[in-house]
Design a protein around this nucleic acid. Sequence first.
RNA 1: GCCGUUGUAGCUCAGUUGGCUAGAGCGUCUGACUGUGGAUCAGAAGGUCUCGGGUUCGAGCCCCGACAACGGCACCA
Length: 510
Amino acid sequence: MADSAVVEPRLLRGLRDLLPDQMRARQQMIDTIRGVYESYGFVPLGTPSLEYLDVLTGSAGQEANQSLFRVRNPDRTEREQTEDPTERLGLRFDLTVPLARVIAQYPNLPRPFRRYQVASVFRADKPDPGRYREFTQFDIDSVGVESDLADTEIIAVACDALSALNVGPYQVRFSSRRVLNLLLEFAEVREPITLRWPKGTTARHMADESGTRAARDVFRVLDKLDKVGFERVKLELTAGYQDESGDMIPGLGLEDSQVERIRAFLAVEGERRDDVLRQLRELFSGLPDATAEIDGLARISDRLGGLGYAEDRVRLDLSIARGLAYYTGPVFEARLMEAPQYGSVFGGGRYDDLVTRFLGQRIPATGGSMGVDRLLAALVEKERIRLVPSTAQVLVTTLDPGLTDEYLAIAGELRRAGIRTEPFLGKPGYGQSKKQFRYADQCRVPISVVLGGDEKQAGVVIVKQMDVGRQLTQQAGDRAAWLEMRPGEIRVPRADLVAAVRERLRLLGE
RNA sequence: GCCGUUGUAGCUCAGUUGGCUAGAGCGUCUGACUGUGGAUCAGAAGGUCUCGGGUUCGAGCCCCGACAACGGCACCA
């Protein structure tokens, strides 16, 4: 291979190409979501893929650092960058941090600033099935609004977007980080937490652990409840354990009585939001700050109810923790009932302190993020979206090289009539007809237009509907009969071509 | 990051205790067929057997190492 100049075509793992059929479906989805977001009056924002490393880090706690793609700053030498970390660059890992930067950097933006943004984000984690190192998020956020009206609206717009996408039944679950903070109070969890390692732990396991955690680390553990069940969560909250691979998982060292209180909190659940609220008021009746927070959740619930978002698709679920450290108020996530294995397809919450880093001044904000890739994968699996690899509605075949100008004229006519049309640009010729029809078939172009010498002389064209033949090809038959079939074809006067094509497309629902 | 499995044609895989020029199916291309998608038939292209070292008269096969992919765990803003 060394002496030949070819480079092996390849991608870093976790990255992928999006071929036309995927790309088309994704664009349709994005258009749909954008339509819903704009119907609420949100405005688009674009930011660069690259940001300074110090802009990106620090916001999401330690988690952010390890999965960042780092990029060399072309204006600085390697040495300069190493000596001055503020000169280093990285690829954005979400759209929320860049938004916070923009808010701080453009103080004249109108407030509330309600923006949407759809873009690739990058994480250098180990890829898993359905989890990539570059993926697309479609974010929507309201910045500068203290009121829980803003949170209510984010939940509503998420519901509307999911409905518009025809994803089937879905459920948005919400809770509040502040209620979870009350839980820490209720369970008497004190700062800081000292990690407790299970028996048999060696120094190697503990190497890069700091030994203490913040109390909110409890939330990160609770977030796993769905996935691993309460027993496993309990172990991680108390003494830690050794998992199947032999890894030592440190415990948070809580007492049994504390875990009991957490269990009682998690037992607060129900179909009806006001039922959950009632139980919660009872459980937290000894906490002076609880009433105000629970009232806030009640307001969101009531307003959503008033807007018609009923219990079947919006639930108050106190186990929604969301691991992210920066949430400060209501948090929410959505999942598809028909495809729960895809996890959360929309998630977010209130983050009132995120802009503080850049401005030194607190600016309330709330918002969420639609996981475009997960959603697309789920829709494809559930056959709720069609994968079509071409944009053309019509292929003009080129049987007779002498009629080339005519073919181009036909394509032009159809395009002016608003019909997406492609002339066959490969080798023309009567003998090439097989290839041309096969091309139309493979690309799923719904209609072919055929014009040879015979038709030219008769002043007609053939409009051929490809799906008729596509079905017939399933059955075997002898060649003569096959050639005779000419499935799905109609002959129309040349002058009626546009009308005939338009009518066919209408019947096909294209 | 940890544990495990696997690397042979574009894809899925076969390949005898280590033995001649490394095979099949599917796919691709060409023709049968200057006017129709499928099927059929004939033919063709496509391989440094992941890479590097070792053992051997001889390695796709055995040994060591690296890399990669896949699966599980941890992580997942």
